[in-house]
Nucleic acid binder design. Structure first.
Lengths: 341, 341
DNA sequence: TTGAAAGCGCTAACAC
DNA sequence: GTGTTAGCGCTTTCAA
């Protein structure tokens, strides 16, 4: 089938070692020999068998990226970034879905398939702090997100609390006082929802405002439909509010749609801020003010951290680090200050 | 490091062949032996080295999916589907970006990295019909999209012409007569833009309407910003129109935003139809009528076709097939019939 | 029912 | 400068 090193060697009339030397750029080769080998390679259309090379090297040249679901815009954009960064580091990315289901996540960590790549970048969603022990795996692992802290691995995350606080303060600064929150998770402490809720609370309290339970919209999932439903339910309670902090952009886009349907103007009646800075946030009507969570930085940093563990420049013994992505508020139309009335 | 077959064999006091037999479910093993082996495996936490197995088998258990950019919603949703289908077929998916750049696409087809997976699902964007020869590769390949036809590989595509015609007819049926098109590519014949434009033309001509060049909005890229720009430019020419067929949903969402900014109501002043049925099309304001292109079917069919070539159940000699995905029009608010005025 | 041994294609230590 | 050879971990004839 495909030509091997041996066949190239035969055709060139040299040993396979010499061919290997040529391929791997070993310097001390007589020009004439090199040329013979090179033309044999060209003639046969030889290309090295990476599986064999990997078996030999004990590496695969691939990393795995495990995410809840590529269909979710945030993860799709994250994956795109990881692929770009990995590519320029010469790494192939294998993608796995977990569906955000705890059992699938645990299974993924143990799967023999992990052996077919050199390391894992893992964004858990179903697992919780109690499962941190499962992260103690025999291969390089970089953790993403805010489900688990103080695990045994490098961890890339964002300043959820601070960013959420800044988002809420942005609303306060434009004069809003009755600020709803959409996407809260009952009783959650860590996790994106828990941390962002705490930031929201901190901002309000900093302004001398108590959290009004009537303004807290709970929804487990953060899809557009959930944002719309939750907002609709909130409006139907008849409670008064002039702003909404949505825990991600997708919720915010759904919430804005519900507001529109219900005849409330954004930002005049209700200012809306999201979280994630998805591509589409800048094209919605109105365009969505949001928190840029440093997705590019996260992807870059994750690949680099993983690679450092893989090539041993950071050894297994060195303590795991937690790295925080820089964030910033991106101001758009949905929180334009001042009512036009 | 990680235990090998040999160590398991040693611990169990058998030969490696026996261990291999146990692992691979070979039936004729004395229960006592099997048990000894199994407990040795458990004790060592042995898991087979997939690279070695692959070297031996000449297969990798992975397939590559090459797309222009995961950041684009259509491709992200396609990738999600492919990953799900591949997963249930026991295949790992390696993802590669081409950026839609012809040279990167050609490079990708030849890359030695292709050897590290068993086959390729490839959605070209920069390559054109002239490059069809480059598809003649020594590994299983399934082609997606409408850049190249009659290539030497299985090809999964959609009925662009018919679907575009149906979309345009949908507008005609609601009484629209001055139908703009957004996203055309000058002089293109095949490719999504060319085929969809032809369908648009066919629908108009079927209704006895000539294509008015003033209503043709050209834009090479199909991002939201391009849809907005092109629509804005169209409105600024002062030409009269009451509907727009946007060649994908992203363009349509951008175009709707521009219309909104310019004070034109959708669908009252201008009906808008898109193409792709992205997730977000159902949550935009107004929700977007569009063409569902059978993305799930495409992903499923692509994985199955590739797998059939990989496992040899369809041999290399068998003629390549072109398979067309079923489509349908999804009616939403952006084309609601009849002016409310 | 189990064992010995060859070999998948490659790299690298060691000779010459 | 170049060749010989062992061996990465596995599967699989072939023998026993």
């Amino acid at each position: 089938m495909t030509p091997t090193l041996r066949e190239v060697a035969q055709l060139a009339g040299v040993s396979i070692k010499t061919v290997s030397n040529v391929i791997n750029g070993y310097p001390h080769i007589r020009p004439a020999t090199r040329e013979r080998v090179e033309s044999a390679i060209a003639e046969l259309g030889y290309t090295p068998n990476l599986t064999a090379r990997n078996l030999r090297a004990g590496r695969s040249g691939a990393i795995t990226l495990a995410l809840p679901d590529m269909g979710l815009a945030y993860f799709a954009e994250l994956a795109a970034q990881v692929i770009e960064t990995a590519e320029s580091a010469g790494l192939i990315v294998q993608l796995e879905h977990t569906g955000g289901v705890r059992e699938r996540e645990l299974e993924l960590l143990r799967s023999p398939r992990r052996q077919s790549s050199d390391g894992l970048i893992f964004s858990p969603l179903g697992m919780s702090q109690d499962d941190a022990g499962a992260l103690n795996v025999p291969y390089p692992l970089v953790l993403l997100g805010e489900r688990i802290f103080d695990g045994p691995t490098d961890h890339i995350t964002m300043r959820n609390h601070d960013a959420a606080r800044a988002a809420t303060e942005h609303l306060l600064e434009s004069g809003r006082r009755r600020i709803a929150i959409i996407g809260a998770h009952e009783g959650e402490v860590i996790g994106s929802a828990g941390l962002r809720f705490a930031g929201y609370r901190a901002a309000l309290e900093g302004a001398g405002i108590a959290v009004d339970p009537a303004l807290v919209g709970y929804t487990g999932l953060w899809h557009r439909a959930n944002g719309a439903e939750t907002m609709r339910a909130l409006v139907e309670t008849g409670v008064d509010f002039d702003a909404a902090f949505c825990l991600n952009d997708t919720l915010a886009l759904g919430a804005m749609r519900a507001l529109e349907e219900l005849g409330r103007s954004v930002p005049d009646d209700v200012a809306v801020i999201g979280f994630d800075n998805l591509d589409e946030a800048q094209y919605s009507i109105p365009s969505l003010t949001t928190v840029e969570p440093g997705r590019g930085w996260i992807a870059d940093t994750a690949v680099k951290a993983l690679n450092a563990r893989i090539d041993g420049s950071v050894s297994r013994e060195e303590r795991s680090r937690t790295l925080f992505a820089p964030y910033r508020i991106v101001e758009r139309e949905s929180t334009l200050a001042g009512r036009s009335t």
